[in-house]
Design a protein around this nucleic acid. Structure first.
Length: 270
DNA sequence: GACAACCTGACC
DNA sequence: GGTCAGGTTGTC
């Protein structure tokens, strides 16, 4: 499930192939995937060139010629893959951009993702992007600290809130809280300044490490070239329920917090 | 502030 | 054959 490190990896891998490519054709097989409706979407996008790629939180933006931008969100199982000519497309491919060299495919098992074509100036007014909080490393430790101090919410619920801090999802929240030794249900305001600063540092470190290893390939995540990441091999709690805690050997607990499956060590996380 | 809805496949 | 997985939006 693409969170910040996965979307960043998709951006980086696609950036090797897409800039300067021209869109020659567009096949939309799942009408609800796109905005505006398929006919207008297709008519507008065909003939344009890809200029550059940008990531904001879990959103990917493809900036196109003609003052256009394609706003992509993968939700749980979306994939955006550059496919050289003559190669077989992955299952659940719902959209195919035919390029002057190769193809750009959008595949999505659960069909939750969205591809929205916008005029470039509409980006700054888009409701989803307007709501988005800062990237984790754009927050100073002091601002992060104040943010927690002013919230009575559970730590996990706060960190998952994209309007507070952009890019974290279930995997990286669980991993960060374990590494920080903090219980997911702790009230955000109960953290000491030292704990808050440490958590902020750990979040940034975990995300950077995940980007460096190409993201976490749990479920069906692959990058823009269809390749898996390896950060899942470094997960300490996520997906390890019942297995011994790497620090104290207590079985990793699994409960629901903030309506999400939550992995943590009941001994190490306070 | 909690939770259903959107979907399909993997798993019990 | 039922449950669960989880990001976001919309509803209560």
């Amino acid at each position: 499930m693409p969170e910040l490190p996965e979307v960043e990896t998709i951006k980086r891998t696609l950036s090797k192939h897409l800039p300067s490519r021209q869109i020659k054709g567009c096949e939309i097989r799942l009408p609800k995937l796109v905005l505006p409706a398929p006919e207008e979407f297709s008519r507008t996008v065909v003939g344009q060139k890809v200029l550059e790629l940008e990531r904001r939180g879990k959103f990917l933006l493809l900036h196109l010629s003609g003052n256009l931008s394609l706003l992509c969100h993968f939700r749980l199982t979306g994939q955006l893959i550059y496919l050289p000519d003559g190669q077989e497309e992955p299952p659940h491919t719902h959209l195919r951009f035919i390029l002057d060299q190769g193809n750009l495919l959008y595949a999505d098992l659960r069909q939750f993702g969205k591809l929205e074509l916008l005029k470039r100036e509409e980006i700054s007014r888009h409701p989803s992007l307007l709501k988005l909080g800062p990237e984790p490393w754009e927050l100073t430790p002091e601002t992060f600290c104040q943010l927690l101090q002013r919230s009575h919410r559970q730590l996990k619920a706060l960190l998952l809130d994209q309007s507070v801090i952009a890019g974290l999802g279930n995997i990286y929240v669980d991993e960060s809280l374990f590494r920080a030794g903090l219980h997911p249900t702790r009230k955000a305001s109960s953290l000491s300044p030292e704990e808050a600063v440490k958590l902020h540092h750990i979040i940034c470190e975990v995300l950077k490490e995940a980007i460096a290893t190409g993201g976490s390939s749990v479920r069906n995540y692959v990058d823009g070239e269809g390749k898996s990441g390896t950060f899942q091999e470094r997960h300490l709690v996520y997906g390890r329920r019942g297995q011994p805690c790497p620090r104290c050997k207590t079985p990793i607990a699994y409960t629901t917090v903030a309506s999400r499956g939550t992995h943590f060590c009941p001994v190490c996380q306070k």
